[in-house]
């Protein structure tokens, strides 16, 4: 019993310490973001590797998710004779929820894991220590541009996901099952609000981009610098980032639409 209590205490202390390190890490990284204007090329390079390289998977996923929504939405709505509402159903589902969330999950899987692996390897091959020894702050040089890139890339990816998804819904709904194109768009335009829906969706994806990149970078930074340790850190990134995205999504939804 005593042992159990001690164990619990130990775990608790470790969790708190980890949380503390997370925040210290974030603070150092944010402090490093200040000098980013002078090193704009670093940001460009990271935008390429987390943004451009994730684009294909986002476009393909967005198209299919939109098409599925079109089909499922139609099948459900046609029972109520309300298939004209398909446009607004597809658009709201995408813009409010699926766009930001699925984009963040895919981003965690594609770019987040890559970031963790990259940072972990940098640690294992002493590149991070090497930078420090060359009097170059790794937070400024390595972490800040990556955090900023994730922060910028995810909302852009989510917007692209949404646009492609709406197009996918249009393809299935209008071109295939034959909903009237006019009412598809007009219902959508009447039902989707720029501030309430689209802006909130963008805010969500900014928050998600920040959280996923933060987790990915920290896990890499905190990884045990061996190949096994880096592998485990990568897994942790995907799991933690996904759970964090879903949890935070609930909170944000409750705040925005509750």
């Amino acid at each position: 019993m005593l042992k159990l209590t001690q164990n619990l205490g130990q775990q608790g202390l470790m969790a708190v310490a980890r949380l503390g390190r997370r925040f210290m890490f974030l603070l150092s990284t944010l402090a490093g973001c200040a000098g980013l204007i002078r090193r704009f090329h670093l940001l460009i390079k990271q935008l390429y590797s987390v943004g451009v390289l994730t684009l294909v998977i986002i476009v393909v996923a967005g198209l299919f998710v939109g098409m599925v929504l079109g089909l499922q939405g139609y099948n459900t709505l046609v029972d109520f004779g309300a298939e004209e509402s398909l446009g607004v159903v597809v658009a709201l589902t995408l813009v409010r929820e699926l766009g930001p969330v699925v984009t963040a999950l895919l981003f965690a899987g594609r770019a987040g894991s890559a970031l963790t692996a990259e940072i972990g390897l940098m640690k294992a091959t002493e590149q991070l220590s090497g930078l420090e020894m060359m009097a170059v702050d790794p937070f400024r040089f390595i972490f800040a541009p990556r955090l900023m890139a994730g922060f910028i890339a995810v909302p852009i990816l989510a917007a692209i996901f949404n646009a492609v998804g709406v197009f996918g819904g249009y393809l299935v709904g209008v071109e295939w099952v034959g909903v009237d194109a006019g009412s598809f768009w007009s219902q959508m335009q009447a039902g989707v609000d720029l501030q309430e829906d689209i802006l909130n969706g963008v805010i969500k994806s900014i928050v998600f981009g920040f959280i996923v990149t933060w987790i990915a970078l920290f896990e890499g930074y905190d990884a045990v610098p061996t190949s096994e340790g880096v592998g485990r850190a990568t897994t942790r990134t995907v799991v933690q980032a996904s759970l964090a995205v879903l949890g935070v999504d609930f909170l944000l939804t409750a705040l925005m639409f509750g």
């Binding site: 390079k45 091959t125 590149q127 220590s129 090497g130 060359m134």
Partner: peptide
């Protein structure tokens, strides 16, 4: 400032993987 005057050679070399040899040496 002090570290700029001290070089360190790591076991693995610790070269930056995304820069070529020239850029690595030019980096500091």
């Amino acid at each position: 400032t002090l570290r700029k005057r001290v070089g360190m050679l790591f076991q693995s070399g610790a070269l930056l993987t995304d820069l070529n040899v020239f850029d690595n040496v030019a980096f500091p």
